[in-house]
């Protein structure tokens, strides 16, 4: 479906504001540490849509407190909204690690 791209879904309650901010922050952060963005698809949307993308998601980042049980890893992305730079770095690093491992 995504031409072998890794799919990161970034969600929040309404799927507009905070997921947008988190997705932008993540995109920028991953690019900065040299991740090949062409192999990546980052989409933001509603928490409600997780089910719809369930099969395709490789990594989920939620900017609201989300406790779902999934086969893919879930990260909290509120740091991108509150301006917590340490927290942002942590998420970016963890996602980058996962992407590297998944590509092996």
């Amino acid at each position: 479906m995504y031409q072998n791209k890794k799919f990161i879904f970034v969600c929040c309650g309404a799927g507009k504001l905070t997921s947008f901010m988190a997705a932008e922050g993540l995109r920028k952060g991953l690019k900065e540490i040299g991740i090949d963005m062409k192999k990546l698809k980052i989409t933001h949307g509603m928490m409600h849509d997780i089910g719809r993308y369930e099969k395709d998601i490789d990594i989920l980042v939620s900017s609201t407190n989300y406790k779902g049980n999934h086969s893919f890893p879930v990260f909290n992305g509120i740091a991108f909204v509150t301006g917590d730079e340490e927290g942002q770095k942590e998420v970016i690093q963890s996602v980058a690690e996962l992407l590297k491992n998944q590509q092996k």
Binding site: A14, T82, G83
Partner: peptide, 10 residues
């Protein structure tokens, strides 16, 4: 439904 309080960092 979607609260908007934001606890800021720092």
């Amino acid at each position: 439904r979607y609260p908007t309080g934001l606890k800021l960092h720092g």
